[in-house]
């Protein structure tokens, strides 16, 4: 079994345990073991774009460094962790002041300058494993299921930094859905925001956003949606007026692999 450095993030240890569990189990079927970084700290959920902000980015830097020292890259499953870690890593490349101040602050723990790589589970499936191998591992093809992939914001934007997929017309999750034997449903709102954290301050605004997304998927014929983001799942299932089942993409893979 090959190992890859893994940053689970706080939500995958709590409300989104399924996202974590099925990530581990499905990857094991494909011959990889997720090697959890020791003593990781929460990424903070949101990347602060302010150039002068250092302290809030240090937990990400520590995770990046640990991943780099343990095989060169760090794998994430949660969209938010992916976004925060990858934007933090990018900052080293474009902001020498950030690099200097982070390393000054970290002292002996420093010595990291953005050399590592951040990879999302979905990218890993596409680029390292390949959807042919995913397809070959399917025991229960999800024939006849119509599934709307929900990318939201955090996997795609800013695309110049993340490079996850075409930000306006992504296809990674659709390719995955096909490999699992189901039918992908393309709907206009798949790369728009669910309302995110505004649900804590303005429930009604979150309701409007998430209803638009769920409605769009439903109109195009989706039976259910898949996501990599615990907050997207929360908003669509709790705040949207439209009834729509939402699952973590890892659960869908587990279902098709016959390990659910």
């Amino acid at each position: 079994m090959k190992k890859i450095s893994y940053y689970p993030g706080c939500t995958l240890k709590n409300k989104a345990k399924d996202l974590d569990r099925y990530a581990r189990e499905t990857l094991a079927v494909l011959g990889y073991e997720l090697d959890e970084i020791e003593n990781w700290q929460c990424c903070g959920g949101a990347y602060t774009s302010a150039k002068d902000e250092i302290a809030t980015k240090l937990p990400s830097v520590r995770a990046l460094k640990a991943g780099y020292e343990n095989g060169g890259k760090v794998l994430t499953v949660c969209s938010a962790c992916y976004n925060v870690l990858k934007q933090t890593n990018h900052e080293f490349k474009v902001n020498s002041d950030f690099d200097m101040r982070v390393n000054n602050y970290m002292g002996e723990d420093g010595g990291y300058h953005g050399e590592g790589e951040v990879v999302h589970f979905l990218e890993f499936l596409r680029d390292e494993i390949g959807f042919d191998r995913v397809k070959a591992a399917v025991k229960n093809p999800l024939t006849g299921k119509k599934i709307g992939a929900y990318y939201g914001c955090l996997l795609l934007r800013p695309s110049s930094v993340l490079g996850f997929d075409d930000p306006e017309n992504p296809k990674l999750m659709e390719d995955l859905i096909r490999a699992l034997g189901a039918e992908p449903v393309i709907y206009p709102m798949r790369n728009e925001c669910c309302g995110g954290y505004i649900t804590l301050d303005d429930k009604n605004a979150a309701k409007k956003r998430s209803t638009k997304v769920a409605e769009s998927a439903k109109e195009m014929g989706a039976d259910c949606m898949i996501t990599a983001c615990p907050l997207c799942l929360y908003n669509i299932t709790k705040n949207a007026d439209t009834e729509m089942e939402v699952k973590y993409f890892t659960e869908l893979i587990a279902e098709a692999f016959g390990i659910l």
């Binding site: 706080c10 709590n14 929460c42 903070g44 959920g45 949101a46 809030t56 301050d201 615990p230 709790k238």
Partner: peptide
């Protein structure tokens, strides 16, 4: 509420 992910609280704290 009982379903709110930690991610939501962390993000809101960061923003507000």
């Amino acid at each position: 509420d009982e379903d709110m992910p930690g991610q939501l609280l962390m993000t809101a704290m960061r923003k507000y």
